[in-house]
C-alpha cells in the first residue's frame, strides 16, 4: 500500500509572529521556517507503517515556494521515499490545495493519505476533510491511534467529550492530532541520504 503524506512549510512554532505595519499579513521575512508540527507527526506515522511492513512506499507532497524543498528534505530524512513539490509563490486556500491533492491522488492512487489536522499558521483545519470529499474517500480526523487491516483503518479520534473509535474504509484520508506519536529526529546519515532521493 502506498501512503501519501502532506507537509506544509510554516513559521517555526517557537517564533513570536509579527504583523506587518500595514496590517496586510504576518511578516515572514527573516523568520525561521519549519515543517508544520502536525505534518511532522503525519510523516512519522507513515514511516512507522512502512517499517511495520504495512506500507510499501511513502510519498510526501508539499505546496509552496521553491524553498519548501527544505521541508520535503526533512520528511525524506525522516524516512519518506519520494517527494513532490507543487510550486506556488501565492498563498493557496484550503479548497485549492485539496483540489490539487485530489489530482495527485488520482495519479498516485495511494491506499492511505495522512495529513496534519491543521497548520499552525492559518489554523483552518479543513484540507483533509475537503480532500476526502473531493475524492469520495472516508475520513478519520484528529486521530491519536491507528490500526490498519486489509480493507479498513481503525482510528481513535480525539473529540470534545473524550475519545471515539471509528472504522473507516480504505482508501481513506486521516488527519492526525498531537498524541498519535512522537516524531523522530533525522540522523545525519539519513539527512545525507535524503539529498539523493527524488524530489
Amino acid at each position: 500500500m502506498k501512503v501519501l503524506v502532506t507537509v506544509k512549510r510554516v513559521i517555526d512554532y517557537n517564533v513570536k509572529v509579527r504583523v506587518k505595519p500595514d496590517n496586510t499579513d504576518v511578516d515572514l521575512k527573516n523568520v525561521k521556517m519549519a515543517v508544520n508540527p502536525f505534518c511532522e507527526i503525519a510523516v512519522e506515522e507513515a514511516v512507522r507503517l512502512k517499517e511495520a511492513g504495512k506500507a510499501t512506499e511513502v510519498v510526501v507532497v508539499s505546496m509552496g515556494p521553491q524553498n519548501a524543498q527544505e521541508q520535503l528534505r526533512t520528511a525524506l530524512a525522516m524516512g519518506a521515499d519520494r517527494a513532490i513539490l507543487v510550486q506556488s509563490e501565492e498563498a493557496l486556500e484550503s479548497l485549492t490545495v485539496a483540489k490539487i491533492l485530489a489530482k495527485i491522488v488520482e495519479e498516485e492512487q495511494p491506499g492511505l493519505v495522512i495529513m496534519g489536522k491543521q497548520s499552525i499558521d492559518t489554523d483552518n483545519n479543513q484540507t483533509g476533510q475537503m480532500l476526502a470529499a473531493l475524492t469520495g474517500m472516508s475520513q478519520g480526523t484528529f486521530i491519536s491511534g491507528l490500526e490498519i487491516s486489509d480493507s479498513e483503518a481503525q482510528v481513535v479520534r480525539e473529540i470534545d467529550g473524550g475519545l471515539q473509535t471509528l472504522a473507516v474504509k480504505l482508501p481513506a484520508v486521516l488527519t492526525v492530532d498531537l498524541r498519535l506519536n512522537e516524531p523522530r529526529y533525522a540522523s545525519l546519515p539519513n539527512i545525507m541520504k535524503a539529498k539523493k532521493k527524488t524530489a
Binding site: 486556500e93 484550503s94 479548497l95 483545519n125 475537503m130 470529499a133 480525539e158 470534545d160
Partner: peptide, 19 residues
C-alpha cells in the same frame, strides 16, 4: 466543535466553496 470541524469542510468541498 470537534463535530462541526469534522463535517463542515467536507460540506464546503461538496458544494465547491471555501470555508
Amino acid at each position: 466543535t470537534t463535530n462541526g470541524k469534522n463535517f463542515m469542510p467536507r460540506v464546503a468541498a461538496l458544494l465547491d466553496v471555501g470555508q
